[in-house]
Amino acid sequence: MTAADSQIHVMLVDDHAIVRQGLRSILERDTQIKVIAEAASSGECLALMDRATPDVLLLDLKLSTSSDTEGLDLAREIADRHPKVAILVLTTFLNEDLVKQAVQAGAKGYVVKDVDTDALMRAIHDVSRGESAFDARSAAAMVRSMQAPAPETTPGLSPRELEVLRHLARGLSNKEIGKRLYVGETTAKFHVGNILRKLEVSSRAEAVYEASKRKLL
């Protein structure tokens, strides 16, 4: 595998050209990250996706159109048409509803634009590996948004799976979970897979959301 093959290909979606230029300059300091495309709108993004599919879509939810939901609508469409693309929200807006809606739309992570450079790069690496990535304030907002009565039925998670679930909620990777529980990464991944299946979700972020809603954390 060449160095180019191992790079994380990123598409930037933000309606401000100066923001995209700044992000490109920052991200490409990491030799493992390559910005392959930029888009200012959902239509432009979808057109570009037909020619070059990125590993990570770095998406601002608030694009300058008459629709306040364009970013969320785009996330849903990308998640449906290109399920292998990891969507990472990068926005100035932070509230419980937006974080919850972003996760439900298919986002694997949510960070605010005042996050430091290293944290943003870590988030891109994390979601490219299938992990979730939330900064501290976004994670707290998501948990607050999920404070709801538990449903009548709860999944039959084993004590070990509940333990793994708590580590998932802290944003740990499979490898990190394995180290904490003194098991191999493959075993940790197996437990995570069981959790997703039992909670009937498709991503780690959705698992944390569903578990919080069911008061399993």
Rank of each mutant, 00 (worst) to 15 (best):
V10F: 03
T92N: 14
L199S: 08
L199Q: 08
V183F: 04
L90V: 09
S64R: 14
Q101H: 13
L181P: 06
S6M: 12
L46A: 05
R137P: 00
S212C: 12
L165E: 06
T2V: 11
V201R: 12
H16R: 11
L90I: 08
E185N: 15
T69L: 14
S138T: 10
Q21K: 14
L72P: 03
P83W: 03
E210H: 10
R144F: 06
M121C: 12
G171L: 07
I33V: 14
E44R: 14
A211L: 05
R166E: 06
H16T: 09
I195S: 05
H9Y: 06
L162M: 13
A211D: 01
L165F: 00
V164I: 08
T154C: 09
K215A: 13
G22H: 08
L196D: 03
D116N: 15
I36G: 09
G178A: 07
G43P: 00
E77N: 11
E152L: 12
S6Y: 06
V19I: 14
C45I: 08
K108Y: 01
I195P: 06
T153F: 09
V183M: 15
R81L: 10
P54Y: 03
R29E: 08
R197K: 15
L27E: 02
G156N: 10
E206V: 12
S212L: 10
D68S: 15
S145H: 10
V208D: 00
A207C: 10
V56A: 07
T91E: 04
S67C: 07
A39N: 07
K189S: 15
E163T: 14
R129M: 12
I195A: 07
Y110V: 08
L12Y: 01
R144Y: 04
A40C: 06
E44N: 14
L90W: 03
G130Y: 02
R214D: 00
G43Y: 05
R144W: 04
S128N: 12
V85C: 08
L120C: 03
H125W: 01
